[in-house]
């Protein structure tokens, strides 16, 4: 048992001359809800991409569940229990909600080509169970009954929920949510806070989210890390962050803080 589910040390990502993530140390205690915030272009999504194996950092170390993820193929990282959603929704549009969820069960299902063609009893049972599990997950995220709707025909809010359901189908240990409340109305955002707690408490999933809505961030997270221009400028509990001078400056600008005084 490691105490930290995720351990990133001195992670640096460089695009040509631009340093997108600059020697960031970052860890996520198992079972916690952590937020990554910062102004646009601070390197948050880039950091997600490093964790999920899309980018290889120019140096640094990332351990997930005690094992390094660097150089591991994205699908293997996903199968080992790291699931994510996307800032700009990336569902499989021409597939139904239920199929979308079942795609993410891929690593956990066993049927091969032959058993699928022959339809062995085992394969049929597996498919039936997968379908039921998808139904259950859709209920869990609050969009029961849309199983056979095509993803691209769902309303925007439901699509965001479907993305979470799909990510949960991977049976993740760590769930990465990239701006999950973007485009939600205040009411939906409020229920989202409870939802994240439900994910953690009922499913035992550790959650890391990128979020702009400060109300959500302060309400949901136990720890917050702030990035600016790729560097970590603050880290701590919501209370710490709220009163941190550098964070206020990063968000409002120097003149803004003066005006606030």
């Amino acid at each position: 048992m490691t105490e930290n589910l995720l351990d990133a040390r001195a992670v640096r990502v460089q695009f040509g001359g631009l340093v997108a993530v600059n020697d960031v140390d970052f860890n996520i205690p198992t079972g916690s809800i952590v937020a990554l915030i910062g102004p646009n272009g601070a390197g948050k999504t880039t950091f997600f991409n490093v964790l999920t194996g899309l980018y290889t950092p120019s140096h640094g170390q990332v351990d997930f569940d005690g094992k390094s993820v660097l150089g591991v193929a994205p699908h293997k990282i996903a199968a080992s229990g790291m699931a994510r959603t996307f800032q700009n929704i990336r569902l499989f549009g021409a597939m139904t909600a239920s199929e979308n969820v079942m795609v993410a069960m891929h690593p956990h299902l066993k049927s091969g080509v032959l058993s699928t063609i022959v339809r062995t009893p085992k394969q049929r049972r597996e498919e039936r169970d997968a379908r039921l599990m998808a139904k259950e997950l859709l209920e869990f995220v609050g969009i029961a009954g849309v199983d056979d709707e095509f993803a691209k025909n769902l309303p925007y809010g439901d699509q965001r929920r479907l993305e979470v359901a799909r990510a949960l189908a991977l049976r993740p240990k760590l769930l990465l949510l990239d701006e999950p409340t973007a485009g939600m109305n205040p009411q939906e955002s409020a229920t989202f806070t409870q939802f994240v707690h439900r994910v953690r408490d009922q499913r035992g999933v550790t959650v890391l989210l990128i979020e702009h809505d400060m109300k959500v961030v302060m309400g949901v997270s136990e720890r917050i890390t702030v990035l600016e221009y790729g560097s970590k400028i603050a880290e701590g509990t919501p209370q710490d962050i709220r009163s941190d001078q550098r964070v206020i400056e990063a968000y409002l600008g120097k003149s803004g803080t003066e005006a606030a005084k």
Binding site: P74, H75, A79, A83, F86, R90, A104, H106, P107
Partner: peptide, 10 residues
């Protein structure tokens, strides 16, 4: 539909 999303879904 979306190769990258598929790989991130395992």
């Amino acid at each position: 539909e979306d190769e990258l999303a598929a790989s991130l879904m395992g």
